[in-house]
Design a protein around this nucleic acid. Structure first.
Length: 140
DNA sequence: GCCAACGTTGGC
DNA sequence: GCCAACGTTGGC
């Protein structure tokens, strides 16, 4: 079971909108980066990821679940990129800020710290557990 | 196939 | 709003 991190600017697509999309979830379109694409291709239905607000908020604000594996992104005219569907699972009781992540030694190798521009990132199991604990989520 | 120029992202 | 880092494009 792998873990992920999805980054989104709240002004484009926020956690609140993800929650409103409910059980049916939504497609995660707009990725135009091959490394991010590779992450999505590796995703399996049922795997979980963090929902991170970039620019405004700069914090992990919730957990999402992959509900449909990689398929073509109809908004990509070049036809080179695809997407997955995700649904909101649970909000972070306490959002975990970028500052807090940077201050935590156990998270110094997180892609969020080392490659902040990557919009879809892999998260290790220990990183997942650490961030969940920091956010007051128990061990999901 | 190299590399300079350009565009975009995202933290500050 | 600025700018550094990175990815992509296109001329050669």
């Amino acid at each position: 079971m792998a873990y992920w991190l999805f980054k989104s600017e709240p002004s484009t697509w926020s956690w609140d909108q993800q929650v409103e999309a409910g059980e049916a979830g939504t497609f995660w379109n707009g990725v135009r980066n091959h490394l991010a694409k590779k992450q999505m291709q590796a995703m399996q239905v049922g795997e979980r990821g963090f929902f991170y607000h970039s620019n405004e908020g700069k914090a992990v604000v919730g957990v999402v679940e992959v509900i449909r594996p990689y398929y073509p992104d109809h908004t990509d005219e070049s036809g080179r990129f695809g997407m997955v569907d995700v649904r909101a699972v649970a909000p972070m009781p306490r959002p975990v800020t970028l500052d807090a992540i940077k201050a935590e030694a156990a998270l110094k190798d997180m892609a969020l710290v080392t490659n902040s521009r990557l919009s879809v990132q892999p998260v290790t199991e220990s990183e997942w557990a650490t961030v969940c604990a920091m956010g007051g989520l128990g061990d999901r």
